[in-house]
Amino acid sequence: MFARRLVGARRMSAAAVTLAVPLALCAGAAPAQARDDGDGPARPVDIGGGRRVLLDCRGSGSPTVVLVSGAGGASDEWTHIADAARPPYVLVGASWGAMIAALFARTAPARTAGVVTVDGASPFLKDALTPAQWSAWMEKVRATDPGKGLETPDYPAAVRELREAPALPRGLPAVVLTSDHPWDLSVGGGSTWPAWLAAQRRLAEELRARHVTDTDSGHGIAVEQPRLVVRAIRDVVGQARAGQER
């Protein structure tokens, strides 16, 4: 089954916990209700605190693939559907969505079959940036007008929550996709590109993931190279299925 448009939230713990609400609804959908023939109507799901997410469940089989969009992102970031229905889940996090996916994997390992990050935000980025760059980026994030009810990430709090969460389960299938067309956060003077790459390497090491760096893409890999993302998802799904059969 394919579940999409689960958006980033200001509090990481709240975001990870509230994943359980829409995912439970996806898992409970009968196969006859699943859609895999193009865009169908998504339904809003109340996750508390006056917030809602749009839930779109498609396909059948196991494990479920959960596509977690980046900050301000929506379902149009994902243009391909992986044929995957009930727990456990393969979590696919783009940009900020990678932080949410990683926290879910740490706090719900029994429900996690694998992780794919798509030029994902890394908890190691603060260490890789200079203090001036980090400070300027945090100020830039705080000054961003989210508009239209969108939420902005709280990076420092998110990093703390990840560090306080249980360790990732060993042997978890994972792929880290990293952009190779330089892009920049444009903060604090000097290029942030080397720091981004260093943080991606450390993320891949922490996840014990296959690290794909030849992506021919900028930050928006899901839009620029969707087939590459699909291949990574299928790889992780295949490993998860093989593990279930053992």
Rank of each mutant, 00 (worst) to 15 (best):
Y89P: 02
V90R: 05
L91H: 00
L91S: 08
L91A: 05
L91R: 12
V92F: 11
V92C: 11
V92T: 10
G93V: 04
G93A: 13
G93H: 02
A94N: 12
S95E: 09
S95W: 04
W96P: 02
W96Q: 12
W96G: 14
G97T: 10
G97Y: 14
G97K: 07
G97P: 05
A98R: 09
A98P: 01
M99G: 12
M99D: 12
I100V: 14
I100C: 15
A101L: 05
L103Y: 14
F104L: 13
F104P: 10
A105D: 00
A105L: 09
A105C: 00
R106H: 13
T107K: 10
T107F: 10
T107L: 12
P109S: 07
P109C: 05
R111H: 15
R111G: 06
T112N: 04
A113W: 12
A113C: 03
G114R: 14
G114N: 08
V118L: 05
V118S: 03
D119P: 12
D119W: 01
G120K: 15
G120Q: 05
G120C: 06
A121L: 14
A121M: 02
A121D: 08
S122G: 10
S122C: 07
F124T: 12
L125I: 04
L125P: 06
L125M: 07
L125Y: 00
L125V: 04
K126A: 12
D127M: 15
D127Q: 11
D127H: 06
A128Y: 02
L129Y: 00
L129A: 00
T130C: 01
P131Q: 03
P131V: 13
Q133G: 00
W134H: 01
W134F: 01
S135T: 01
S135D: 13
A136Q: 08
